[in-house]
Amino acid sequence: MKENLIELKNLPLGRTAKVKHLSSIGAARRRLLDLGLINGTVVEAMHKSPSGDPTAYNIRGAVIALRSEEASKILVELN
């Protein structure tokens, strides 16, 4: 695995990154695909909920909240 790949949940707020790998499977994976989250999609971490989880991401112009469980299965490369 390349060194500059991190889990999406570790993406600092305000930073953008490019999706490199989805490791979720089945329904969870299809849900992410439906949101337009595929290889190469640019994602920005926007806000954290008051308790720190979930986090809202800007995905193709829509603001989508993902729990850390989901976000940890998405590997991204920092821009």
């Binding site: 979720s24 329904a27 969870a28 849900r31 992410l32 949101l35 979930p54 809202a56 829509a62 603001v63 989508i64 909240a65 993902l66 729990r67 469980e69 989901e70």
Partner: peptide, 11 residues
Amino acid sequence: LPSSFALELPP
């Protein structure tokens, strides 16, 4: 266990 979830925050 809780299932996966993605919530849209509309404009």
